[in-house]
């Protein structure tokens, strides 16, 4: 009798385990909406008080292009947009003035005077602003992925997301330094990058800012790669960054403040130079009150750039460039 009970119990447990496997295989993968990790879960985080919105959209530039990946703005207000094996230039009014082809798919773009730099795979490619290819720079290694570029006048910095390093290049393309190794003596935490989002920008003191997305922080380095400080914390309210690998993109305002974009939560926020939350530029989801602009759910922002007058340029997933300016200006 005892043996029969043991057999029955064991067979039932075995069949139950098999049933669970079958259920998981056939049922859990049926509906993408049910399985979505970024659907309803961020609903409350996406809700924004309209009084916090400090910016208004002043222009939408319909680029008419496909698969744009990055934007940069020069001193005159011309917008350079890259993607789909080409670079297009728009004047400040949004009229396309020039397009030239490039021979690889660019993922990010940076400008310095008449020099234009594109990140493509593991390489940085140097062009001039009229579309002449000047050089392809030696990569850190062939397994890299340049996710972002920044120029501080003398040197060009490339954020390699796969190697988890920021690469410092001379203007003629010589790799001078790789920044980001964990160092317990200097306190450098090392870059933790769960995905390929890895943005960098230069601050008003020529200091390098890096989005250490796995730590949900923005870190400050000297131009020689010495770790100085960091700010940012894990939070779903406006004071920090929520979800995974955020901020996905950021840019620095002329006053040293930060404009950040969080993917998943789809929120563009402005922080002061010390990392204190100031206002919201745009957000998705249900606004409490009216708003000038809604990004739409999971409407991914691809890049952010800052104009010389502090205007914020946002490249969205529909290949539009949205220009925002402070409400009280």
């Amino acid at each position: 009798m005892k043996q029969k009970i043991i057999i029955a119990f064991s067979v039932v447990l075995l069949l139950f385990a098999i049933f669970l496997i079958a259920r998981d295989l056939f049922h859990s993968s049926h509906s993408m909406t049910d399985a979505s990790c970024c659907g309803d879960d961020f609903t409350s985080a996406k809700q924004v008080d309209s009084t916090l919105i400090g910016y208004k959209r002043i222009r939408i530039i319909e680029t008419g292009l496909k698969n744009l990946t990055g934007i940069a703005v020069n001193e005159k207000g011309d917008i350079f947009a890259c993607g789909n094996m080409q670079v297009s230039i728009f004047d400040a009014a949004g009229t396309k003035t020039k397009t030239f082809n490039v021979d690889s798919v660019p993922g990010c773009i940076a400008l310095s005077g008449n020099d234009l730099y594109l990140g493509s795979g593991s390489h940085v490619i140097h062009y001039d602003t009229i579309g002449r290819k000047l050089a392809v720079w030696k990569p850190y290694n062939n397994e890299g992925y340049i996710a972002s570029l920044a120029v501080n006048g003398k040197y060009i910095y490339a954020a390699d997301a796969l190697n988890k390093r920021v690469l410092k290049y001379s203007p003629d393309g010589l790799l001078l330094q790789d920044i980001g190794k964990k160092d317990s003596i200097t306190g450098a935490p090392g870059f933790v990058l769960p995905s390929l989002y890895f943005d960098i920008a230069f601050g008003s003191f020529n200091d390098l800012w890096v989005a250490n997305t796995g730590r949900l922080q923005i870190e400050n380095y000297t131009s020689n790669g010495h770790f100085q400080s960091s700010w940012g914390s894990s939070s779903f309210d406006n004071s920090g960054f929520g979800g995974c690998c955020n901020p996905a993109h950021f840019a620095i305002l002329p006053d040293g403040g930060f404009v950040t974009y969080e993917k998943g939560i789809d929120k563009i926020k402005v922080f002061d130079p010390t990392g204190q939350f100031l206002s919201i530029v745009a957000a998705a989801g249900s606004f409490k009150g009216n708003s000038d602009f809604q990004l739409g759910n999971n409407h991914l922002v691809k890049d952010i750039a800052i104009g010389i007058n502090g205007s914020i340029y946002v490249l969205d997933a529909y290949n539009q460039i949205n220009v925002f300016r402070k409400k009280n200006l």
Partner: peptide, 13 residues
């Protein structure tokens, strides 16, 4: 853990 796990709301695993 090497770094703090990010916060998630709702049922996200």
């Amino acid at each position: 853990q090497r770094f703090p796990r990010p916060e998630f709301e709702g049922k996200y695993q």
